[in-house]
Amino acid sequence: MPVADFGDAGVVSTETLNGVAELRAFLRGLPGVDEVGASERAARLATRSIKTSAKAEAIDLAISMVDLTTLEGADTAGKVRALCAKAAHPDPADASVPRVAAVCVYPDMVDVAVRALDGTGIGVASVATAFPSGRAPLAAKLADTRAAVEAGAAEIDMVIDRGAFLSGDLGKVFDEIAAVKDACGAAHLKVILETGELATLDNVRRASWLAMRAGADFIKTSTGKVAPAATLPVTLVMLEAVRDHRAATGRQVGVKPAGGIRTTKDAVKYLVLVNETAGPDWLSPEWFRLGASSVLNDLLMQRRKLATGAYPGPDYFTLD
């Protein structure tokens, strides 16, 4: 009997060419998301007041979850090496600061980052699949992915084909994710939904499940190249999705909001959201990441403020 493997959806019979129809029915059958209610919930959690010892814990946790990122056309090997040095020792003056989770670069910078991070235990994440638009033939996307993995990337951040998703061609999106997952080999796959282009929270929930069923190890909000990037309501819905997915299948998937997270306050709001939505099981760099770069210096400043009682000026922290 002809079958297709739909990841966690299980092996589905394609005898009547029903696989995509079943997938679509499943995604359409997910409970809806009320935008007003979800936004209210996210806004209420954002009023949590995290002070003193809880703030200190949250800052260190947030630092350890940062995917320190540089994704510019103007990136140089020197800039990447500087970023790697910062990733390993975010505050050279204070050895108690934890290292960040990963350094995230374009595929052609992977080997530079891998060499710079050798021995630090920090992984290199690479965007791939014609980031950020995803507009390339599948063969090019797979080649992009393989090149990054071969250069030593431990994590691949792929983008989904939003055009296909929005036009209803869910099978194409699913197949691409599955193919990229296959090309990743042992590398972890983060699937970028680009929620700013998905427009509704219903779509965010459906795309989250689609990515998880196709094999995503992480679901990620945004490329950072499209506004709006990560928002609290979007992340709330994705956290609900990974929580429900684990309850249904037993497999835990991580979440990564990316873009627009600039201050310690922002970062702490995300941690509260994780804590009270998906739960404490997600409160580690293994299951939650913050895709950001400028937030790191604010976290370091707030950290030193808590320790010394005084705000150091921005010039006391390195730019990259």
Binding site: R48, I50, A54, K55, E57, A58, L61, N275, L283
Partner: peptide, 9 residues
Amino acid sequence: MVFEYAPAP
């Protein structure tokens, strides 16, 4: 980890 919120009176 357990994220305990410190008292914030």
